[in-house]
């Protein structure tokens, strides 16, 4: 689509074209401001003292930069009765996300490999059923899941949350790998079988080495989903096992004491940092994951 850009219609003067070009850049810049403004406000607010917040205005730069709010947010802010900041909860989120991402990605890779390359009767139906699971509103499984976690003795624990994230991540991870492996010619598998390679051997030495891009996409997708999750976190955790999103919400909505907006903002940025970091270093793969489910390949 590069070439349609304001092709000179005979009547259009050079000047008019230039003005249009400027207008275009101004518009794009204004939109960029709209998207950046909340992040800017969060950062500046987190660096101000409470006094300055009360007397200054929303978009002013801090007159005096202070990191007190960051310190409080990290290790002193109250989430209910506990006043240890977001640090322990940040740690919880890591403990939840890493195993959940690893397990769901591994299972998704194996499932996708089976569905794409080892078709058997019913494999497509199984895949459709799994795919469908991606779309259910999770409210419909909250009540029974709470009971089952209780029966399994992992209610309110980190393993419990890992379990939940693995189960409900499977649909997407399987979809990602299936769509990737389906484009690899089936002859490859057939030839390897003729040569006497088995199921795991073919996966290990043919498919896995080809899979790096889709592994990156899946890991990023799962990590973002799990790190940013709130519904499961708030439903299936208890005081000591809450993920960082739940802790953040508790800090912001705690009703005791003075409202410390700078601490709220610092805590919000801390909670957002890991996924923002992933986005900045691997944006291409992040976008690919987002669009994988929605654009027909």
């Amino acid at each position: 689509m590069a070439d349609t850009s304001f092709v000179p219609a005979a009547s259009q003067s050079r000047k008019g074209k230039l003005a249009l070009r400027w207008l275009l850049y101004i518009l794009l810049g204004l939109f960029a401001l709209f998207y950046l403004m909340p992040l800017f406000v969060m950062i500046t607010t987190s660096l101000k003292s409470l006094d300055e917040i009360r007397t200054g205005d929303l978009i002013a730069l801090p007159r005096e930069v202070t990191f007190d709010a960051w310190r409080t947010a990290w290790s002193g802010a109250c989430t209910g009765i506990q006043c240890e900041g977001v640090r322990p909860f940040f740690w919880n989120s890591i403990l939840i996300a890493i195993p959940a991402v690893a397990i769901s990605t591994l299972l998704g890779a194996m499932n996708g490999y089976v569905v794409a390359q080892w078709r058997f009767r019913g494999a497509n139906i199984i895949f459709s059923l799994m795919l469908f699971g991606c779309f259910i509103p999770f409210q419909v499984v909250l009540l029974p899941m709470a009971r089952i976690l209780g029966m399994m003795g992992i209610a309110g624990t980190i393993p419990g949350l890992i379990f939940v994230h693995v189960i409900y991540g499977l649909g997407f991870t399987t979809l990602f790998f299936r769509n990737y492996y389906v484009s690899i010619p089936a002859e490859l598998t057939k030839a390897a079988k003729v040569d006497g390679a088995g199921f795991f051997r073919i996966f290990w030495s043919i498919f896995l080495p080809l899979s790096l891009p889709i592994i990156v996409v899946t890991v990023i997708w799962q990590f973002t989903q799990i790190w940013n999750d709130f519904l499961f976190g708030v439903s299936f955790s208890q005081a000591g096992t809450q993920p960082v999103t739940v802790a953040l919400n508790n800090i912001v909505n705690s009703t005791t004491g003075v409202k410390e907006y700078n601490v709220d903002m610092a805590a919000a940025i801390i909670a957002a940092l890991p996924t923002l970091f992933v986005y900045v270093v691997a944006g291409k793969y992040f976008v690919r994951g987002l669009t994988a489910g929605s654009v027909k390949g």
Partner: peptide
């Protein structure tokens, strides 16, 4: 899109 809705809501 990379942010948690909780972060967005807080901001």
């Amino acid at each position: 899109m990379a942010l948690s809705m909780i972060v967005t809501g807080t901001a």
